[in-house]
Design a protein around this nucleic acid. Structure first.
Lengths: 356, 356
DNA sequence: AACTAAATTGTGTGCGCACACAATTTAGTG
DNA sequence: CACTAAATTGTGTGCGCACACAATTTAGTT
């Protein structure tokens, strides 16, 4: 009933607190048979270290370096930050400090600089969205030498130095979009995927989405519904974007389903006419302000939510589970593919799932 | 930079630790001007109580009584329990104990008995799914006298003794179902809502769902798509259920959309033929085993997920926020209305949103 | 056997706070 | 002004553990 302490174990084992301490914390310098005996007693008694006392006595604090895009450069990133904050509120008393190393989402040099700063500060782990794949790999190599693991969110890459990934499965999110379009598709209707953005070279997960989308229609033998894919980097240049969009409209009179691989659906939807809205089914990603507005106006049909708050929240909680609670954590943690439409959007907004 | 302690404050204020302690913890017996001074200093220095040390010294443990349906009586309830477990793993070191008072979902007497047991044990709060509304109200009255708040999940009721509610908004879940049906509805198609279950008297939130469903079609002026509502209590009696179902089919040749207000969709879907599946669009609730199977077989089209794991998780975290971290919590915490279909169901299963 | 180095074990202290109790100051009374 | 009760303030101790260091035992060497 009562909590077992090292003192209890010491008493039973007939040794001092110090020896028990050495065994429990694996500090060595204990005779093998004594160690075994103590471990057995601890196990029999169901000893659990008092984390409060431990944290208090050791006075150790853990440090996490957060290397994520600056919300100022892309508002999506406010949300992972919010999740990090909420998780910290709950567990910071275990002795956790975070340091933010923000970088402009569109600037590789800033990413590198901040990653280097983060590594230099020698945290216990780095929580990052490795949007620049190639560079991230390099830093992962460096970090591995320092025995400094990465917790990755949002963008899935592979490297042994990654403790875990929290985010979506891109392929399946595209596949899901296929199903959503299918609900209203007729033979002959065309599906167009748009990828508006920079650094397309690094965009493995964007093409994954399109591959998933295509896979849906081929797996369902829907050869009468072809899928096309357009990339357009200069989406910030309004006249060029308008020209691009009109050309696509002209080239695809049978266009019915429109898929945006990232959060920038609103850029093109803003260009559409009332007639367009009636004609097209539109699926985009991310619940950012302009998209939400268009969703509520029935101009975007579905948004697939990436759970950004959850990504940040889980990132921190994975750290806690691994470093403090010493629990096994899963390397790949795919978040649900939330389907958001006008009728349920408010519940994703007002009360995101972490309940406060 | 360094953590501020009561000692620091005492030093600056020119008083002893004891006095600071009295002020910080509101124990009284301190001269007013001294109290003010100390509070100011604490505030200026950004003092935050070290929860570790506090928990250690006070040796206080909090107790939560969990009064929820026994998973053995309804497998849905495994999931809130899982959420409770996961939350506890993260925060139990703050000194939290839980005691389970399970009751058979279908037995009011067991509910009452367990609620009384829970109250008798004098916990700091009760976490409950108040499925029996009237009785819950009575216990809320009792509990309020003991200054013992309720944290409610899944079933929304109103009472000042309720600290918070975590769960869905029933009306809007029905409304959302309306939208899902609308995607494929043609003029003349009929919508049928089924409520299979006992204790329908207490079923406010079931009729809320149906009202939401109806509201969708009336708000969209879809008078050509009438909504009908059937209740059937004896769903466990297979022959009777079959008869009931066949009669409905005969009475509603134009039936196209089928809505189940609770998790028991599978009872009737099991009775359907291949032809039926092609004809009907089906929306049900809850990701329990039989429903998931039918979803994967394309026999159920949509499941609206109630986030049961989250309900349990948030229930505990609300306790922590309120009692331990002394944070403001929101009284009504509606969880998202998750739309689950074959293409995203796996991600709701393998990795529920709290990331392990 | 005497002695030293190495291996093993024991002890003291403090982390920041809660709480019981002791000490001091102030107010109230005749 | 002496004296007491009440108000206010100060001090000591322990929560369970981590860690530095002291003490003891054992092994190795001549």
């Amino acid at each position: 009933m009562k909590k077992v302490t090292i003192k209890d174990i010491a008493l039973i084992a007939g040794v001092s607190r110090g020896t028990v301490d050495r065994v429990i914390n694996g500090r060595g310098n204990v005779a093998i048979e004594v160690e075994k005996k103590i471990l057995k007693i601890a196990n029999d008694l169901g000893y659990e270290k008092n984390l409060m006392a431990s944290a208090l006595a050791s006075n150790r604090t853990f440090k996490i370096g957060i290397v994520c895009p600056d919300p100022a450069s892309d508002s999506f990133w406010e949300q992972p930050r919010e999740g990090i904050f909420r998780a910290l509120e709950l567990v910071k008393h275990y002795g956790i400090k975070v340091e933010y190393y923000d970088f402009n989402l569109f600037r590789k040099d800033e990413f590198c600089m901040q990653m280097e700063n983060a590594l230099t500060s020698r945290p216990d782990a780095i929580l990052t969205a490795p949007t620049f794949t190639a560079e991230s790999m390099e830093y992962l190599e460096q970090a591995e030498k320092l025995n400094l693991p990465f917790i990755t969110i949002n963008t899935e890459i592979n490297h042994p130095g990654i403790l875990c990934y929290v985010g979506q499965n891109s392929y399946h999110s595209g596949y899901l979009a296929g199903r959503l379009f299918h609900l209203r598709l007729k033979p002959g209707d065309e599906i167009i995927a748009f990828n508006l953005g920079h650094n397309l070279a690094n965009a493995q997960h964007y093409s994954d989405k399109v591959n998933g989308l295509k896979a849906y229609f081929s797996e369902h033998g829907m050869i009468q519904n072809p899928v096309f894919w357009y990339e357009f980097e200069e989406f910030m240049d309004e006249p060029k974007l308008i020209e691009f969009w009109h050309n696509v409209q002209i080239d695809h009179p049978k266009m019915k389903a429109i898929f945006f691989t990232n959060s920038r659906a609103f850029r093109i939807v803003h260009l559409m006419t009332a007639e367009d809205f009636k004609k097209y089914d539109i699926v985009g990603f991310d619940m950012i302000e302009p998209n939400i507005l268009l969703l509520k106006q029935d101009k975007i049909d579905f948004i697939i939510n990436q759970n950004p708050i959850q990504q940040g929240y889980d990132g921190i909680m994975n750290f806690v589970n691994h470093f403090i609670l010493k629990k096994q954590i899963r390397k790949t943690q795919y978040l649900p593919l939330d389907i958001v439409l006008k009728e349920n959007v408010d519940f994703y907004l007002e009360n995101f799932r972490l309940g406060q």
